[in-house]
């Protein structure tokens, strides 16, 4: 890799951003992501999200196939990246019911399910930004994108967590641009 830096400020800026990347890979950062998810679920959904380990014999292909809906919120700054929430439709519908204080048997529109998972991603990313990113520099959040499969423009998956909540599972991932990895 070749680097061309003209001023002490550029050198300092690069060193600072490199430090940020190193920190964002630490377990402490994933711990803060875990706390962000738990906080959102406890306050806004009135339910617990418990970190679990993926079963040792889990089939990655079957896991990928089970995902019905994804919501992503991008953050820009140094580094650039995204927080991605992934769930089955049943799990996302459960999140929507809890957010909207509906009964477990209530029907929930697909639009509401999408919007609720998007808002959940928004709050988790906001909490993560406050805990991890804001103390390290100037970062901006995007608006949530929700789809069956969201296009991720970042090449490096820096970490992932799996949670069990009221009636389902939720995967939460952090992605970073390759330029930062």
């Amino acid at each position: 890799m070749h680097l061309f830096m003209n001023s002490p400020n550029q050198v300092a800026s690069f060193a600072q951003s490199t430090q940020v990347i190193m920190r964002i890979k630490t377990e402490e950062t994933l711990e803060q992501l875990r706390k962000s998810v738990e906080e959102v679920f406890l306050i806004m959904l009135d339910t617990e999200a418990c970190l679990i380990e993926a079963p040792e014999n889990s089939d990655p292909v079957a896991y990928e196939a089970a995902i019905d809906i994804e919501a992503v919120v991008e953050f820009t700054g140094q580094p650039k990246g995204a927080v991605l929430l992934r769930a089955t439709h049943a799990s996302a519908a459960d999140i929507a019911r809890k957010l909207l204080m509906m009964e477990p048997t209530d029907e929930v529109d697909f639009e509401d399910v999408e919007d609720a998972l998007g808002e959940c991603a928004n709050m988790v990313t906001g909490a993560f930004k406050s805990r991890v990113l804001d103390p390290r520099g100037n970062f901006q959040l995007g608006t949530p994108t929700i789809d069956t499969r969201v296009q991720i423009d970042h090449e490096h998956r820096a970490g992932n967590l799996l949670f069990k909540h009221h009636e389902g599972h939720l995967a939460v991932e952090i992605w970073l641009s390759e330029e930062n990895a």
Binding site: I43, M44, N122, G126, A127, K129, D134
Partner: peptide, 24 residues
Amino acid sequence: TTEGGEAMIASAMSSGANGYVTKP
């Protein structure tokens, strides 16, 4: 808003907001 950073709060207040509540 989910934007709980000091810079964003300062920006909102200096723009004329009366108060600020962070989500969640």
